[in-house]
Write a protein that binds this DNA or RNA. Structure first.
Length: 1013
RNA sequence: GGGCCAUUAGCUCAGUUGGCUAGAGCGCAGGUAUCACACACCUGAGGUCACAGGUUCGAGCCCUGUAUGGCCCACCA
């Protein structure tokens, strides 16, 4: 393999070669048995819906930085990649494609089998899954690809079924009728998080509901106001609605109990127009705001979340008689799953909801019951998947009971066992989880983990209903005792009324039991699980759970989770819950579900006996391990927005494919730039432009590209110096000031990077690399080294320092720009294998691959060099400054005399005379503690010294220059005097600060005085 | 309505427990084909730190309020 560096940096060539080498040599492969403390990250699995964009790229880049850094630092490191099957999202795109390309629905092609929808989605998965993996590879991700998981693969499926079984057996899963968000296009329920609001122009219809028996035997005979005047009782109640068709499902009208206009009517009835049903007038002080509108609200429990809550409030508590005044109300579903009015809608049955609305408004108008219609803008929830309006819909769904699972997950964040970076994001986690709302986990989809429960309709009399699981088992006499150990059973009464089912959950790996059950009339639930159910298990399922594997033992809990803030609740919180549930925490007092218990005693968890209290003694690691948390740290990466501040998305067309950026700028440039943007501020603005080839990219990445080019050129230069050079033993006593300085600066950069990475400040790390390498190393050290390398007496030591600092820089920067550093490393190894400065810059050496080299340690600082060198920089800049101001020809040296403050300073200047002369293009004529100003010279101050520069006379420029400086000094002196005149400052500020101010004042006054001479 | 965040140079952003004349990149102005690099080098201009109060010897930073923008949650029938 040729290692010499071509003149121009070509990212594409460099990247392809380096990545192939890492793959060929299995540099990413991890082994749990290898030595070193475990360090593990599981990737947030991208949705297989489509291709990755820059949001994924920043997330992956930051993970790779951590992975590579820890791998170099000697940890036994693994990064587990994978992809999410993304249930509803993926099914939706494939169904859409099916519709567009073949004009078919999923019902036309069927679920399973050849040409079925599931097969088609797998084909999609193959295509996009591969594309995603390739994108990650182009980014340079050092994932252990042999461990790539898919949330729907066998390994994940097994974990899903075990978890479901465990939850089912523990009574944490139940089936119930719930009002869900129904997507009538996809015919599935979707979660709240998959809904977006859209403003829709519609109307507010005011409808009259005639009151029955208005003056009849109600409890209140008259409606009285505070003044005792009698209001006439109206004959009808006016309700306002944006959805008149739902009145077909009204089962009450509600008023406020303290509303004098209406409280007399409580207990009476209204005659529902069109259908003629009699429905009660009820009091509900939660639903009704008496100050709003007419004070009357129609109640449609089956089609409105608030109304459903009313229905729930009026349900009798089990075992308790109904309370007077809060009698239960009816629940009438008026919709079919595809959004048409059902048989409960009488004459409107069969109409689509919009048609029904139109017809109902017409009929109401005809009957004179439509009081008014006014324009209205409503926020209507739409399905993020099908982009159609969602319908609140009553259906049978599976739920996870959250309270017992959420509590421990809250506690580990409260007590700091799990830490968020930045910390404030923990609040969102705590707030959401604190609500402990039950988690609806069933989806009426075909793409996903099928719910592993087989259902039997209970045909016997209710009185004979088995009261415990033992008796339920009697209903399955065909199962042996042994087989009985692999099932769990529940009696289910969804909605409290109607049919009763017996549900049997079977542990995975028992197909013979499944078929036995099916032969005996059991039917597997057709629904699949919410996609987050499988992602929730990601950290332990990918490591082999439910088996007790070496991987789990080595790498669980994982070290850190890096993700975007939008899924803190959906994903992070659920991983913590299921992780603790499966890996450590045993809920002691969960609320058992109906018919819970029984089943198997199989132990899923390799940590069977966690301490009962979370505030365990011991290290965070010990506690975390015992509790089974999935990770210790959660680092939130910023969201990437486009130039207008809008979120990137495919549908908006403002998304950027990282591969496009890699093609225009290079992967290292992309990574470096993204890292600099990973600040603690929430969002990153990324102006997007389209280049000539139609690629979406951004000038922002010039930053990273320029840096890489700089690194390439500087390395090429340094290495070219070693090609014909014979190394000499390191001899620190012959180092120059610049040598000491650059090594010390390097060590500072390492220390800064370590500290930054520990708290996930990738921007600080990137900046430390940038400032050190470009500003210190290239701008100053390399320039200082040039003359030294030409001097045979000094070349040897200079080469030692130059080579070793380059070596250290490559190691320091490898995690952020891996391709280019690796490539340069190979050449450096070849040309200059010996690189080590004992005590100053260690751990160097010619490890064949940089990816496996040692992460730099912080060597000794040189305070003296770090103090003196900047003063020389100041002097050089001051001279350059004058040269520029006076427009001196760039090649023409100027004569400079330096009046240095004291013998030591004089000495330092003389020692570094060459540095000053070359970098400032000048000749030092005289350097002493009291140099007389040469005639016709310009006087400037720098680093406490006075410089006299000859041969640049330009009276006009000089006048301007002096005037400007005088102004600055006068202003500064005024500030300093004011500060020193402040008695409080003298009394209370630290003495060294006061002294500093005095020194500063003296210096400024002295300079001003000389300027005036 | 509740909560979180932001507001610093023309633009995009840093600024750590309050303490030197508030920084970077891009852009801008002037200069430079110098043998690593014009994707570069040298120099410079540019800021009332959103606004109003307060605490303090001292505030970009802490407190209170206001304005503007963004996000999350709950949402009026």
């Amino acid at each position: 393999m040729p290692t010499d560096l071509p003149k121009t940096y070509d990212p594409a060539a460099v990247e392809a070669q380096a990545y192939q080498t890492w793959l060929d040599e299995k540099c990413f492969a991890a082994d749990a048995a290898a030595p070193g403390e475990g360090y593990c990250i599981v990737i947030p699995p991208p949705n297989v819906t489509g291709a990755l964009h820059l949001g994924h790229a920043i997330n992956a880049t930051l993970q790779d930085i951590l992975i590579r850094m820890h791998r170099m630092a000697g940890y036994n490191t693994v990064w587990i990649p994978g992809i999410d099957h993304a249930g509803i999202a993926t099914q939706a795109v494939v169904e859409k494609q099916l519709k567009e390309q073949e004009n078919k629905t999923r019902h036309d092609v069927g679920r399973e089998g050849k040409g079925g929808l599931v097969e088609r989605i797998w084909a999609w998965k193959q295509q996009y899954g591969d594309r995603i993996i390739n994108q990650l590879k182009r980014l340079g991700c050092s994932c252990d690809w042999d461990r790539t998981r898919f949330t729907l693969d066998e390994m994940c499926a097994r974990a899903v079924r075990h978890t479901f079984f465990k939850l089912f057996k523990d009574g944490f899963i139940y089936r119930g009728k719930r009002l869900v968000n129904w997507d009538i296009f996809l015919q599935t329920s979707i979660s709240d998080d998959e809904i977006y609001k859209e403003t829709v122009k519609t109307s507010m219809w005011h409808i009259a509901y005639p009151i029955e028996n208005r003056d009849g035997d109600g409890s209140a005979s008259e409606s009285k106001t505070g003044t005792g005047t009698v209001s006439p009782r109206p004959a009808q109640m006016i309700v306002a609605t944006t959805r008149p068709e739902t009145m077909l499902g009204d089962t009450a009208v509600a008023v406020h109990s303290q509303d004098p206009r209406w409280n007399w009517a409580i207990g009476k009835h209204v005659r529902l127009p069109l259908t003629g049903r009699l429905i009660p007038i009820i009091a509900d002080d939660i639903l009704v705001d008496p100050k709003f509108g007419t004070g009357v609200v129609k109640v449609t429990p089956a089609h409105d979340p608030n109304d459903y809550a009313v229905w729930q409030r009026r349900q009798p508590k089990p075992g308790q008689p109904a309370v007077s005044g809060v009698e239960p109300i009816d629940l009438i579903n008026i919709l079919t799953p595809d959004g048409k009015i059902n048989e409960n809608g009488g004459p409107y049955a069969g109409l689509k909801r919009d048609a029904a609305r139109k017809k109902i408004v017409e009929d109401l108008t005809a009957q004179g019951l439509l009081v008014k219609e006014e324009p209205h803008e409503a926020q209507v929830g739409h399905s993020d998947r099908s982009k159609t309006p969602i319908e609140p819909y009553l259906s049978d769904q599976w739920f996870v009971h959250m309270a017992p699972l959420a509590e421990p997950a809250l506690e580990v964040v409260r007590n700091g066992t799990i830490k968020f970076y930045p910390e404030r994001h923990a609040q969102q986690y705590l707030a959401w989880l604190g609500e402990k709302r039950d988690w609806p986990i069933s989806r009426q989809l075909w793409w996903g983990h099928r719910i592993p429960v087989w259902m039997f309709l209970w045909n016997g009399p209710h009185a004979d209903l088995p009261s415990d699981s033992q008796q339920v088992r009697m209903e399955l006499p065909y199962l042996t005792n042994e087989q009985n150990q692999t099932i769990a059973v529940q009696v289910m009464r969804p909605g409290g009324k109607g049919d009763i089912f017996i549900g049997v959950c079977v542990l995975p790996g028992n197909p013979e039991i499944e078929s036995l059950i099916e032969k005996n009339g059991g039917r597997q639930d057709p629904d699949v699980l919410d996609t987050w159910f499988s992602s929730a298990l990601w950290p332990h399922s990918t490591l082999g759970w439910p088996d007790s594997t070496p991987d789990l033992d080595k790498w669980y809990p994982t070290s850190v989770l890096l993700t975007g803030r939008d899924i803190i609740t959906l994903w992070v919180a659920r991983m913590v819950m299921t992780g603790m549930y499966n890996m450590g925490f045993a809920p002691s007092s969960g609320t058992p579900g109906e018919g819970g218990g029984g089943g198997t005693t199989e132990q899923c968890s390799p940590h069977p006996n966690p301490p009962p209290e979370y505030q365990g003694r011991g290290s965070r690691q010990e506690v975390g391990r015992a509790l089974g948390i999935p990770f210790y740290d959660v680092a939130i990466n910023p969201t990437i927005l486009d130039g207008k501040g809008e979120r990137m998305s495919k549908s908006k067309g403002n998304g950027v494919d990282p591969v496009d950026v890699i093609d225009t700028h290079g992967a290292d440039a992309l990574r470096f730039t993204l890292a600099t943007m990973a600040t603690e501020t929430q969002d990153v603005r990324m102006p997007v432009k389209k280049d000539a080839q139609g690629r979406n990219t951004s000038d922002k990445f010039d930053l990273g590209r320029n840096f890489c080019t700089k690194l390439w050129n500087a390395s090429k230069f340094a290495i070219s110096n070693f090609e014909s050079q014979i190394p000499v033993p390191v001899d620190e006593s012959n180092w120059s000031l610049a040598d000491h300085w650059i090594i010390s600066r390097f060590n500072r950069a390492v220390a800064e990077s370590d500290a930054a990475l520990k708290v996930y400040r990738f921007d600080v790390y990137a900046k430390a690399c940038y400032d050190f390498f470009w500003r210190d190393f290239c701008d100053w050290y390399v320039e200082a080294a040039k003359p030294a390398m030409k001097d045979p007496k000094r070349a040897g030591q200079t080469a030692n320092v130059l080579a070793t600092v380059l070596d250290g820089s490559l190691r320091l920067m490898h995690p952020i720009i891996p391709f280019i550093t690796e490539t340069i490393w190979w050449r450096l190894n070849e040309v200059r294998p010996e690189r080590e400065l004992p005590g100053r810059l260690e751990g160097s050496g010619n490890t064949p691959r940089l990816i496996k080299a040692k992460w730099p340690t912080v060597g000794a600082f040189c305070e003296d060099a770090e103090h003196v060198f900047p003063k020389l920089q100041e002097i050089i800049v001051a001279i350059r400054n004058v040269r520029n101001d006076y427009k001196v020809d760039v090649k023409k040296p100027v004569k400079v005399s330096i009046n240095a403050p004291g013998e030591e300073a004089t000495q330092k200047v003389l020692e570094n005379r060459e540095l000053i002369e070359i970098l400032a293009t000048c000749r030092l004529i005289a350097v002493a503690p009291a140099v007389a100003p040469p005639a016709d010279s310009i006087r400037v101050s720098a680093a406490g010294a006075e410089l006299f520069i000859e041969g640049v006379i330009d009276p006009e420029a000089e006048k301007q220059r002096g005037g400007k400086r005088r102004e600055e000094l006068t202003k500064l002196i005024a500030t300093l005097i004011a500060r020193l005149n402040n008695a409080g400052y003298i009394a209370k500020a630290p003495p060294e600060l006061v002294q500093q101010t005095k020194d500063q004042l003296a210096a400024a006054e002295a300079e001003l005085q000389k300027l005036d001479q």
